[in-house]
């Protein structure tokens, strides 16, 4: 059984947020839901101002607070390390969301189909061209049950009133593909692979580069490793945040 992990090379990231877009298209996440989120940070004062970027997927922690607090076992950790949500078991209490220190959980405040970008049904001009097809694209892989447990865990567009978060693109990993953010990054910031395989890209990167994990002091044991950088200090300021969906 592999032990999946991700590395994120901060020295390569240029903050283009292509990973965020790739994630949204792959998983059909609703407006305002960013399973992959890229912080744009500003540090220090002019003229020494420094801008840097930090992608934030789910950290797929080994000691995941979200898994511990889930009252019904809808949030669970697979043997290969993926932390997933069973959309058919989740009761929508949002305890996982408040327990997670990384802010990676997004609740379906309304039906996912009603919260996609470009609400085709509301715009007569777009509607004329699309014939009211909404959402414009639905990834068929998200309706398949994966893993030994055969639970409904992939994608986002399933139910209202349940929680969702990054799955490391379980539907792609099961086919031997990389997660969408990894595959779509134009400068190869991400690597994804098996920690137990010494020849995997993640193992090699971890051997060759200095790395840290986010909020390591919380004891969550994340499976996401940040290379060639430092954790955000309390003095960093987030610039150009993506806040879409606050009222959607």
């Amino acid at each position: 059984m592999p032990r999946y992990a991700m590395t994120i090379d901060l020295s390569r990231c240029m903050g283009c947020r292509a990973c965020m877009v790739a994630c949204k298209v792959e998983n059909n996440t609703p407006e305002g839901h960013f399973w992959m989120y890229v912080f744009r940070f500003e540090e220090d004062e002019f003229p020494r101002t420094r801008i840097w970027f930090l992608p934030r997927p789910c950290q797929h922690c080994d000691n995941a607070p979200c898994v511990k607090v889930c009252p019904v076992g809808a949030r669970y950790k697979r043997e290969d390390g993926l932390v997933l949500t069973d959309f058919q078991r989740c009761i929508g209490c949002r305890y996982c969301e408040v327990a997670c220190p990384y802010g990676v959980n997004y609740f379906h405040w309304k039906h996912p189909n009603k919260a996609q970008y470009l609400d085709y049904n509301d715009d007569p001009e777009v509607r004329e061209r699309t014939g009211g097809a909404m959402p414009p694209y639905r990834n068929p892989d998200q309706d398949v049950r994966y893993g030994q447990e055969r639970r409904l865990t992939a994608g986002s567009a399933h139910y209202r009133g349940v929680i969702g978060k990054c799955t490391f693109c379980v539907h792609r990993v099961e086919k031997g593909l990389e997660p969408a953010c990894v595959a779509n990054c134009p400068v190869r910031v991400f690597e994804f692979g098996d920690l137990d395989d010494p020849d995997s890209a993640v193992s090699q990167k971890l051997r060759s580069s200095p790395h840290f994990r986010l909020l390591e002091e919380e004891g969550t044991e994340p499976r996401v490793f940040y290379l060639n950088g430092t954790p955000p200090s309390p003095d960093v300021r987030e610039v150009m945040p993506v806040k879409g969906g606050r009222r959607s």
Binding site: R94, Y106, W109, R246
Partner: peptide, 11 residues
């Protein structure tokens, strides 16, 4: 709303 990037409070 969701806390974090959405800027709300889930409870």
């Amino acid at each position: 709303r969701d806390w974090g990037s959405m800027g709300g409070a889930p409870w």
